[in-house]
Simulated scan of single mutants.
Amino acid sequence: MFDRIRTYVAGFRGSARAQSAGPRERRAHNLFDAAAAYVSARAEDDQDGIDEAAAWVSPEALSFGVSELACRAVVALAQERGASPRAVARDLLGLPAA
């Protein structure tokens, strides 16, 4: 599941960088663009990518976007595993089963 997200975001980030090659071609990023780029950069330990994505939106908007991405990822992974979102979230965080 996360590999699919990483693959999608990696392709997206590459096209976003290509689009922002010139000052006229630069496009505005929304909070979900920023969240996807930020989380994938964190997963890849890419500090430049983290800094770039964090500059696209306000810290509050980035926080909301990351939270929404986490919720969607946990729900998708729970459906894939046939488990509850609570069980998946606890497992991802290394917590004992509730």
Rank of each mutant, 00 (worst) to 15 (best):
M1V: 04
M1E: 06
M1L: 04
F2M: 13
R4K: 11
I5W: 07
R6N: 14
R6D: 13
V9E: 06
V9Q: 04
A10M: 13
G11A: 14
G11V: 14
F12A: 13
G14I: 10
R17S: 09
R17Y: 07
A18P: 01
A18R: 03
Q19M: 04
Q19D: 04
S20F: 12
S20M: 14
S20D: 11
A21W: 09
A21N: 13
A21S: 14
A21K: 11
A21H: 13
G22N: 07
G22I: 05
P23C: 02
P23R: 02
P23W: 01
P23Q: 02
R26Y: 05
R26N: 06
R26W: 04
A28F: 04
A28G: 04
A28C: 03
H29V: 15
A35F: 00
A35C: 03
A36M: 11
A37K: 06
Y38H: 07
V39F: 01
S40I: 14
A43T: 15
A43W: 15
E44F: 08
D48R: 08
G49H: 13
I50H: 02
D51R: 07
A53F: 12
A54L: 11
A54R: 11
A54H: 08
W56V: 07
V57W: 02
V57A: 00
S58G: 03
S58C: 01
P59I: 05
A61Q: 05
A61P: 01
L62P: 13
L62W: 00
S63T: 11
S63W: 08
F64I: 07
F64P: 10
G65Q: 00
V66Q: 00
V66W: 02
V66A: 01
S67F: 04
L69E: 00
A70F: 03
A70M: 08
C71H: 04
C71D: 05
C71G: 05
A73N: 11
V74W: 00
V75G: 13
L77P: 00
A78L: 00
A78V: 00
A78I: 02
Q79D: 15
Q79P: 14
E80L: 08
E80N: 03
G82F: 06
G82R: 10
G82C: 10
G82Q: 09
A83D: 08
A83R: 07
A83M: 09
S84Y: 05
P85Y: 07
P85S: 11
R86K: 14
R86T: 09
A87T: 03
V88S: 08
V88Y: 08
V88F: 08
A89F: 15
R90M: 12
L92F: 10
L95H: 08
P96S: 13
